[in-house]
Amino acid sequence: MNSRNSISFSWLTSIGLISLLAFMEPAAAASDDSFEHAERLYDTYCTQCHGVNRDGNGVNSVFMSVQPRDHSDAKGMGDIPNSEIIDVIKKGGLAANKSVLMPAWGGVFSDEEVNQLAAYLRHVCKCGSDQ
């Protein structure tokens, strides 16, 4: 391979890589966009206990007798089936024999929003079969 060919090859490789990156970026952004509403709901209603970083350290958690769930914990969250996550959001912690401090949000969120939140939690923990 002469030097001219070698330069052309590296140009082609670069263009290929840039094209690939350009292709990947919008795909990743589109994936995050699909959680936009759920993320807004989470920020509005869930962060007070589950924390700005989604790690269970919300501003209310200081005096709580049971630590709110760490939603960033892949292991802990990965063990919970989707049906239970949906049940707990809608009916509260008692629905899964968990803490009463997790209230029922079924009177606030629509079923569709609950499903969106459940999917968003899988996105946050990067875990579970439905991520």
Binding site: G51, V52, N57, V59
Partner: peptide, 10 residues
């Protein structure tokens, strides 16, 4: 609120 040392703080 913002993240604190452990829990979020006002």
């Amino acid at each position: 609120v913002k993240p604190g040392t452990k829990e979020d703080v006002v």
